[in-house]
Design a protein around this nucleic acid. Structure first.
Lengths: 342, 342
DNA sequence: GTGAAAGCGCTAACAG
DNA sequence: CTGTTAGCGCTTTCAC
């Protein structure tokens, strides 16, 4: 191991020790082809022995690339760290950043104050090489910021007004469609839904999948069976309470966290899940596995979304490719006890 | 609003436009006193109008400070984003970083591979101005890395071998003591505990508080009433199952997440909480509020821990103060239904 | 395949 | 209070 001294070694030092020029050392570090095997080995050895580490700021300044990626959670993603979805996504992003030798820098917005302060840093070229932005409602100021800036960006989730933007997402509509179809196959007659916020595509698309599944089987879509929530547990609880008087025999809930709230409301009413009411959630987060009864749900590959977002972003950065890219992941129906299929 | 062009303005540009030298502009930006009011205003106006933003890398290089703080989750913090504690703490850290114009950079370790790659970046001076490290087991390699490096560091939680390190923490022992004392006052006779991992101070201290509360009231500490977990839900579930044959009438559980698992185990056994068994958890995370029955628990100010960690770290960085600092927050008993006091 | 030289955009003495 | 002058440590033409 190289000594970890206070004195920082520089390229200059390594060059001297390996008896070549700074340029050559730089080439070795950056894997430039124009270095002879012999010299390369010699330099590598010195680097190894000294524990030399390039100075990131110096490198950024000279190369005009910071090798820092931003991960942005807009203010309208209020639920932020209350829903396990976000930490999990963050984990995927962090992992992929490590893998690719990029540094991850986290931006979480709370107040307009934060935005005023941080938006310039995010959108101006020079600080970040690119950003991953959690998609949210159309009117969040983050959109105009990104649009007016010139920084490479990938959205996590399709944003309502994100035409021309790159994004990673899951097929929300098909996921919901699958969930509701399953419920129909099980013979449920009055299938209700608790939607997510309808100003986000995830909320809209999942609702659309619910509607489509019903229609494809010739069922009538009843508005009294549709309640809306905001992905929070309490909103799921309240929505379920509002739904119960309509005597549904099944509910498709647009997120696991809301489903947990709904489950509680149902049970408090003395009703049994799945006997009286079947439930299918969406996300497949850990809490879904440990509820009583365990929650049937639509699994989405959250961590992989994070990883893919980074890879897509790096591709955009490195290729300079301007045309928007997109990647839609499939979901998977996970059957547990809450839907009563076993 | 300044135009967000591809061309980056430099200090030079601002200097020219405001008809002063680069140094003066630099002084204005860095709030140096040696600038006349008049000139300062003029420069500020130009900055405002042009939307000039200093180039961080250039600044870092020249000033030898990156204004980037690292937040590190060691590999042995496996539960990572499964326990809402961490996201919440992260939130506090992110908030405080914004406030102080520092950038937050996140390091989450999964594999030895990650460590090999990232440790040098963390411990070498020059990349990060300081790091906040989530405390964990004594044998995690992060400790030697930090110790051998020369980077300012604050631990979140007291580490088992962190003598001489700065940290923020809560008074775990007193928190546990309070919880158990409350249970005793309610007349519970056979109070069990489910501990956290005993190679972490949070686990040890909470166990110690349990023991002390019992002893202070002249109770005998029975080993059969002590089960250990690892802060995960499933470990709480298993520990509770192991405890039930000893017929406890109360359990102090060292984390809310484990308490939820224990609750489930108890209820599956047909026992009632709090009638048959009272439960008090630790943390006061959102899930504690929404369980049935709601969980009595020991609240710790998680976000404030994050904020304080940053402030402490900045103080160390800016003052160059070497002597270890520490801050211990008080906890608070939150009474809900699971302990049966109402 | 290698080295010399010119910056990248900023800070920080040092003069004045 | 203000300007001049050196760098910070690296990348990147451009010669050779």
């Amino acid at each position: 191991m190289g000594a970890e001294k206070n004195y920082r070694l520089t390229l200059e030092d390594v060059a001297r020790l390996s008896e070549v020029s700074r340029s050559t050392v730089s080439r070795v570090i950056n894997n430039h082809p124009n270095v002879s095997q012999e010299v390369r080995q010699r330099v590598l050895k010195v680097i190894q022995e000294t524990g030399y580490l390039p100075h990131l700021a110096a490198r950024s300044l000279a190369s005009q690339r910071s090798r820092i990626l931003g991960l942005v959670f807009p203010r309208s993603v209020a639920a932020f760290f209350a829903d396990p979805y976000f930490p999990r996504f963050t984990q995927g992003v962090a992992q992929a950043c490590n893998q690719n030798d990029y540094t991850l820098s986290l931006f979480i917005f709370y107040s307009p104050e934060d935005e005023r302060k941080l938006f310039p840093r995010i959108s101006h070229r020079g600080h970040l090489d690119g950003v991953i932005v959690q998609a949210t409602t159309a009117n969040d100021p983050i959109f105009s910021t990104i649009r007016n800036g010139s920084i490479p960006c990938v959205f996590a989730g399709r944003a309502p007004n994100s035409k021309g933007f790159s994004f990673v997402d899951v097929d929300n509509e098909t996921g919901a469609y699958t969930a509701v179809s399953h419920l129909l196959q099980l013979g449920r007659k009055r299938i209700a839904t608790i939607t997510g916020p309808l100003d986000q595509t995830a909320g809209m698309d999942r609702k659309q999948g619910y509607i489509k599944a019903l229609q494809d089987r010739g069922r009538i879509v009843e508005n009294e069976l549709i309640a809306s929530g905001d992905f929070s547990r309490i909103s799921g609880y309240n929505a379920a309470r509002a739904l119960l008087p309509q005597s549904p025999d099944a509910i498709f809930v647009a997120s696991d966290v809301m489903a947990l709230g709904a489950l509680q409301a149902i049970q408090e009413e003395g009703l049994k899940v799945p006997d009286d009411i079947a439930i299918v959630g969406f996300d497949d987060l850990p809490p879904a596995r440990s509820s009583s009864p365990p929650l049937s749900t639509i699994r989405q590959p959250i961590m992989r979304l994070g990883v893919k977002a980074v890879e897509m972003l790096l591709d955009i950065i490195e290729s300079g490719n301007q045309s928007p890219q997109r990647m839609i992941f499939d979901t998977e129906l996970v059957i547990r006890e809450s839907c009563g299929s076993n």
